[in-house]
Design a protein around this nucleic acid. Sequence first.
DNA 1: CGATATTCGGTATGTTGCATAACAATTATC
DNA 2: GATAATTGTTATGCAACATACCGAATATCG
Lengths: 173, 173
Amino acid sequence: MTVSKTAAGDAPKPSRPARKEPAEVSAENVPLQLGELSELLGYSLKRAQLKIFEDFLRCVAPLQLTPAQFSVLLLLDRNPGRNQTEIASTLGILRPNFVAMLDGLESRELCIRIRSTNDRRSHILMLTDKGRAVLARAKKLVATKHEARLNELLGPSKRAALLEMLGKIAREL
Amino acid sequence: MTVSKTAAGDAPKPSRPARKEPAEVSAENVPLQLGELSELLGYSLKRAQLKIFEDFLRCVAPLQLTPAQFSVLLLLDRNPGRNQTEIASTLGILRPNFVAMLDGLESRELCIRIRSTNDRRSHILMLTDKGRAVLARAKKLVATKHEARLNELLGPSKRAALLEMLGKIAREL
DNA sequence: CGATATTCGGTATGTTGCATAACAATTATC
DNA sequence: GATAATTGTTATGCAACATACCGAATATCG
């Protein structure tokens, strides 16, 4: 059987003149053939990435954090005393685009910019207490909801294998 | 050992007045710690996806095709006689955004819109001969350059496993 | 030392991808 | 035949991403 949606109420098609196409019965619900598309790594990669970001946003919604913001908080926590250029470049964010992002985080009092005394051009970035608290809660949500779901979907060993391959691609391609 | 980059030429730091920080020797080239970031699937996924799209664009540059355009051509080839809504929705493209995309492809004479006779609202999409030729050349470039590189990086079996996991995430998450 | 080049954060700006509302034409529904 | 739904389209807004440029501060080198 092909038709599964459109539910009950099937038109029984008792006696029809069939003006043009007899296959018109189920409204041509034939799904498209992906063809070579399902063999394209980039295609699956993009679609999977969108799904995962979507799920991330859902799981961490109570804290109003995007994946990018979460990654910044994580990096600030692990690397205190760094400036904007260092944080941005490690995340692949261009400095100009990082400004507005920091403005957002700083206006929510999750982090602060401190003018460095060694080099008065640069701003040292620091998590605030509130930032650390939000990060802790976010970590918990990500672990128990987001990553847990992926673990359940793939299994721990496959998930690890996936992570390793993605890292390899990101690093060595 | 932690430090592995920065290679040879280690400054032995013999006798330095060390005006401020003795660690200033190698210009503080200490790379940032990714921390939990490297365990975040979404993070690696995004970065890998960017790299792969980048490589795709490079490999198929002579034909001036983006991944999205390539996927449209592939889909049109496999599914002749479909309209814009069907093609767009299978690719996860919203109809309004699909218009400009088709304008681009049609202006390059890679495909054409044909007013359907059954339903004069919809446009049937068809590849032109030029479109089929470009698609054939693109397929070859993708196979011999892009996917070949990934095969060489991951190995065929791991590549297949990766593709399967990504598909599962895209479908079931 | 001082002139030049470089780096830092920041602004301005443009492009692209992605999402929603609305519309005319056409078709389906009742 | 009146109403609702669908198709392609336009307009529009937002977010991500990229480049050029600026002033301030620092580094480099003659």
